[in-house]
């Protein structure tokens, strides 16, 4: 992508100029790519960038906008990005495939993936799904639903679901996959009321597969662990700021989305930010944000293995590098 190269060159040039002329404290250059467009799901990173939190932590960060054409893993592998966000399940899968990525922070503590059904279709409990059409997304999104189906011993007809929830709205499927912070709200804003819907949030059904986490290549970490720690700390600080200042955060999110020509509504981004708060904050307020627990890791890894997506479970200690409380040690 030529655009990012230009940015890189410009940034590099700027960096050198600053270094040479101003002689200020050297900021470390870094590139970050989230897995999707700059919506509220990634508000913490954008806020940290906007509020100069990365600079405060000594990082001159460039955020590469994510999207369907920009898978973070490719960027990490090719070195076009130093940091990226991935789902924990993707991270484990890649690690198991032998890609040397490591998790340096697990931002989302809970899974936002859910199944939604209309009460009018008679579905009020998991058992009611028997014999129904269930819409599922691609493989990585299927681990939890399949475990759910197995757990409740259901016999369902799986239909591949697209990005839209229209098939579900038109009753083409009885049960739809949805992200709590995204498609569920789209369903609500297509005229269905919450009391007309039955929801199955996987994290409430013992299938908590925490999603977005921050990943880097093992090489990057070994080369500059301080940069990694600084990035994680600044990102967490950014999240704290974003959750504490929803109005400011939303206006920045909206601005970024408009810059990318992505249709967006304030209410949808607000819903997303509110859900992020629900998903990020640990239940125990004494536990710092962004930690990955072995328990969660093992649950996800086992789910992957059970589904044949990985053969062996990678060693947790190699997979995860604690960056949050490092200084305190």
């Amino acid at each position: 992508m030529p655009r990012y190269k230009i940015i890189l060159c410009l940034a590099l040039f700027f960096f050198i100029t600053v270094e040479a002329v101003a002689g200020e404290k050297a900021l470390k250059k870094a590139f970050f790519i989230p897995q999707w467009v700059p919506q509220a799901q990634f508000a913490g990173y954008y806020l940290a960038h906007e509020r100069g939190i990365y600079k405060k932590h000594g990082i001159d960060l460039t955020i590469i906008p994510g999207g369907p054409d920009s898978p973070p893993l490719d960027f990490l592998k090719s070195g076009k990005a130093d940091f990226g966000t991935l789902w924990l399940s993707t991270g484990i899968q890649m690690r198991a495939k032998g890609i040397k990525i490591i998790n340096i922070a697990q931002v989302l503590q809970r899974s936002a993936l859910m199944l939604v059904a209309k009460k009018s279709s008679g579905i009020k409990s998991p058992q009611d799904m028997n014999g129904k059409k269930v819409g599922l997304w691609g493989p990585i999104f299927q681990i939890q639903p399949k475990a759910f189906i197995k757990k409740y011993n259901l016999n369902v007809k799986i239909i591949r679901q697209s990005f839209s929830v229209n098939l579900f709205l038109r009753d083409g499927v009885d049960v739809a996959s949805a992200m709590w912070y995204n498609e569920y709200h789209t369903i609500l804003n297509s005229g269905l009321n919450p009391d007309e819907l039955t929801t199955f949030l996987f994290h409430k059904h013992g299938l908590n597969f925490p999603e977005d986490g921050i990943y880097t290549m093992k090489d990057t970490f070994q080369r500059d662990p301080d940069l990694c720690r600084a990035f994680v700390k600044a990102s967490i600080e950014g999240w704290q700021y974003a959750l504490a200042h929803p109005e400011e955060t939303l206006s920045i999110v909206m601005k970024n989305l408009q810059k990318e020509h992505i249709p967006a509504t304030w209410v949808h981004q607000k819903w997303m930010l509110d859900r992020m708060k629900d998903l990020i904050l640990p239940e125990d307020p004494n536990i710092p944000m962004g930690k990955l627990f072995a328990e969660d890791y093992n649950r996800v890894a086992k789910g992957l293995k059970d589904n044949g997506l990985i053969k062996e479970i990678p060693d947790f200690t190699f997979f995860y590098r604690e960056c949050i409380s490092h200084d305190e040690k």
């Binding site: 239909i159 679901q161 083409g172």
Partner: peptide, 19 residues
Amino acid sequence: FYWDWYQIPKELNRPAWTE
């Protein structure tokens, strides 16, 4: 195959207008 214009009439087994 998974686009609305294809999937919706397919799953509903009847003609449909897309959004």
